[in-house]
Design a protein around this nucleic acid. Structure first.
Length: 115
DNA sequence: GGTGTGACCAGCT
DNA sequence: AAGCTGGCCACAC
C-alpha cells in the first residue's frame, strides 16, 4: 500500500495506519513517519496526531513514537508522567534521561512496510 | 473564517 | 556550535 499517494484518507489517518503497525519491541520517530508519508516537513503534525490518538477510539501505540534522538518528548501527554517510559520498558527497552538507549538498534523504519 | 499553536526537523545564520 | 526560521496541517478560539 502506498500511503504517500493516497489522497482519499487524511494525513492523520495515514499516521495512525503506520503507527499501529510498529512491531512490538521497536520504535520509530515522528520525522521518519512524516518522511515515509511524503511530507517530511510535517513531523509536527505526527506529534499532534498522537496527541489526539487517545480519543480516536483506536489502539494507537503512541509510546513507540519518539523524536529523532530517541527522546520521550511526548511523555507529558500520557496520563502519568512516567507511563510512556513504563510501557517502553515493558517492551524491553532501556531508558535513561528520557532517552531510549541503543536507539539505532531498536529503530524501525516505516519503509519496511513496502517490502 | 482568520489566527495562533503544537509529542518535529532540516537548513540557515 | 548554538540559536532562529520556515514548513506542514488539524483544531480551538
Amino acid at each position: 500500500m502506498d500511503y504517500s499517494t493516497d489522497d482519499r484518507i487524511s494525513f492523520f489517518e495515514k499516521v495512525y495506519a503506520v503507527v499501529s503497525q510498529i512491531p512490538f519491541g521497536k520504535v520509530t520517530s515522528y520525522g521518519a513517519i512524516a518522511a515515509f508519508l511524503g511530507a517530511r516537513k510535517s513531523s509536527r503534525m505526527v506529534g499532534w496526531a498522537m496527541n489526539q490518538s487517545h480519543r480516536s477510539g483506536l489502539a494507537i501505540p503512541a509510546h513507540r513514537v519518539v523524536n529523532r534522538n530517541g527522546q520521550l518528548s511526548g511523555k507529558v501527554h500520557f496520563g502519568h508522567p512516567d507511563l510512556m517510559q513504563k510501557l517502553l520498558e515493558q517492551e524491553g527497552h532501556r531508558i535513561e534521561n528520557d532517552t531510549i538507549q541503543n536507539f539505532e538498534k531498536v529503530f524501525w523504519n516505516p519503509e519496511q512496510l513496502l517490502q
